[in-house]
């Protein structure tokens, strides 16, 4: 009896508190400051990427095009339209010099993250980026790595299924099924370089995956754009302030 009375009184107390508190839902916009101070730059050069993975999509060319178009529409920087830089060749030139010094050879085809590593030295080549910067009036340079790979996954999924016996009685029986899915993953790194000095200012890694059922036929290029759509807000927030919309509860 005492326990019941205590329970009732606590419920009453909660109800009274709720009744006494007025609340108002209000929309808010939380400003998120840009991660990079780009005040010193008027121009941006999306130089190109060291890319690999699926041969159905030229992820270097597509990423360069997409980022340039996004920056043109959503940033105040003037986008420089030039041919995509042959970064693989630049890295290979570096390799030849490296081989002369006894360092190991680079893979011809990039099939996984490990294959990208031997090319990474190109981003630390301050002299090269400074030269590129001088050629384009000292812009902010965007480059990096992109790996767009097909992916499959197999798993056993348990689901409840309705079963009816001879008398028409309904039963729910858990059944296990083998589910095969296919899709793509997009991994890499955006690197921001100061065109005046050739030094790296900032870098951000990313990784996104999209999976479909095997019955669904989705072209690789559509999946690529679906994955890039998820990365773009993060990329843009590096260069310009953004606002996150939401609602909160004001109390009285």
């Amino acid at each position: 009896m005492t326990a019941r009375a205590a329970r009732i009184s606590s419920v009453v107390a909660v109800l009274l508190t709720a009744a006494c508190t007025s609340f108002y839902e209000i929309p808010i916009e939380t400003p998120i400051r840009a991660k990079l101070d780009i005040g010193a730059f008027q121009r941006v050069l999306v130089a190109g990427f060291i890319s690999g993975g699926s041969e159905d999509v030229d992820s270097n060319l597509e990423t360069t095009r997409l980022l340039r178009s996004q920056l043109r529409n959503k940033s105040e920087l003037r986008v420089i339209d030039v041919d995509v830089l042959p970064l693989m060749d630049v890295a290979n030139d570096g390799r030849e010099a490296g081989e002369a010094n006894g360092s190991s050879a680079q893979p011809t085809a990039i099939k996984d993250q490990k294959d990208l590593e031997p090319f990474e030295h190109v981003f630390a080549n301050v002299e090269y980026w400074k030269k590129i910067g001088e050629e384009h009036q000292n812009p902010l340079i965007v480059t990096g790595t992109i790996l767009f790979l097909p992916r499959t996954s197999n798993s056993i999924v348990q689901r409840d299924e309705e079963v009816f016996d001879n008398l028409g009685r309904r039963r729910v029986v858990p059944t296990r099924r083998f589910v095969e899915r296919k899709g793509f993953e997009l991994n890499g790194r955006f690197i921001f370089i100061d065109g005046r000095t050739g030094a790296q200012l900032h870098s951000q890694t990313f990784g996104e995956t999209v999976m479909y059922s095997t019955q669904q036929t989705t072209p690789a290029l559509s999946s690529y754009f679906e994955l890039m759509d998820r990365l773009i807000p993060n990329f843009l927030s590096t260069l310009s302030s953004t606002k996150v919309k939401g609602t909160r509860i004001l109390l009285q």
Binding site: I26, I28, E29, T30, P31, R33, R248, L250
Partner: peptide, 10 residues
């Protein structure tokens, strides 16, 4: 409410 206000102001 202050938390909300400060959040709105960044």
């Amino acid at each position: 409410n202050l938390g909300i206000g400060y959040e709105h102001e960044g």
